[in-house]
Design a binder for these strands. Structure first.
Lengths: 147, 147
DNA sequence: TATTGTTATACTCTATAACTATA
DNA sequence: TATAGTTATAGAGTATAACAATA
């Protein structure tokens, strides 16, 4: 990049731009880390929620991941076909399906999670431990504004 | 969202996930703010760099915005067709083209920038002024790791 | 030989509307 | 009427390879 760019265009004072660029860096390393497990960040996130004890519906997952419910369908189709999760009918409301991980899904998630944590350490390596925690708290407030 | 989700799945301790979700919120408000100007975050960013005195080449812009050079071509085709920027041949290297904003481009950028700043204030409203500045500094280190 | 901009292509992601079955 | 999941589709974003002009 040109050395004149040290002049720093106004974009660099734009938090939205910095957020986008930091996220792009983070996404790239995360995708590389998940590649051996044939997972993308999206499918990993769904799997991570399925491993939870929360017994979330597809709707819950869509809202939590800020996805459209129709996108969750496609992600689940893939994970279910690979026997990593199941769609369990909710006895109290036959419209909703609860997403639960299979034993195989839990196993894969365990390995993928280790890879993700390593990728995260790499992404956050420019920050001290204290700064990482602080960043996490600030981002949490932006990620879940009204919660 | 289910109240049981207060249990907070492990994803929530994942900075990459928080970064992605915060960025999605930020992107959505930014796109809404730019809509009256027929700009997306991408084209606004290119325009913002063209307004600069830095006289950047398409390659510089691609690197700075973390885009492939071929994507910059399409963004510039649109902006140039709307008479917002020009591709000026670099006399010292006839391969490279310098991207500069037209008067009209500067004018539109001025208005769009105001809208973007307002959107940013909205996105960052959960944070105090001090926290916003701190977040900006931390994100800058993640956005430009080796600089 | 290497680099800048370009074209072409394919794949992923995002957003929307409409449908079905249940409530 | 409203909601959960689904299907279909189109548009935006991302990634790659190959090419012409120039260095």
């Amino acid at each position: 990049m040109k050395s004149e760019m040290r002049a720093e265009p106004s974009l660099v004072s734009d938090t939205a731009f910095l957020l986008a660029r930091a996220n792009a860096n983070s996404l790239a390393t995360a995708h590389a880390a998940l590649e051996p497990y044939a997972l993308r960040v999206r499918s990993y996130s769904v799997l991570a929620l399925a491993v939870t004890e929360a017994r979330l519906s597809q709707r819950d997952i869509a809202e939590f991941l800020r996805l459209d419910p129709s996108q969750v369908v496609a992600l689940l189709d893939d994970l279910q076909q690979r026997s990593l999760v199941n769609r369990v009918p909710d006895p109290t409301d036959r419209r909703t399906k609860v997403v639960v991980a299979t034993a195989e899904g839990r196993k894969l998630h365990g390995k993928a999670e280790k890879a993700i944590r390593a990728a995260e350490r790499q992404t956050l390596s420019p920050l001290t431990s204290g700064e990482r925690q602080l960043l996490g708290e600030l981002l949490h407030r932006l990620a879940f504004p009204a919660m």
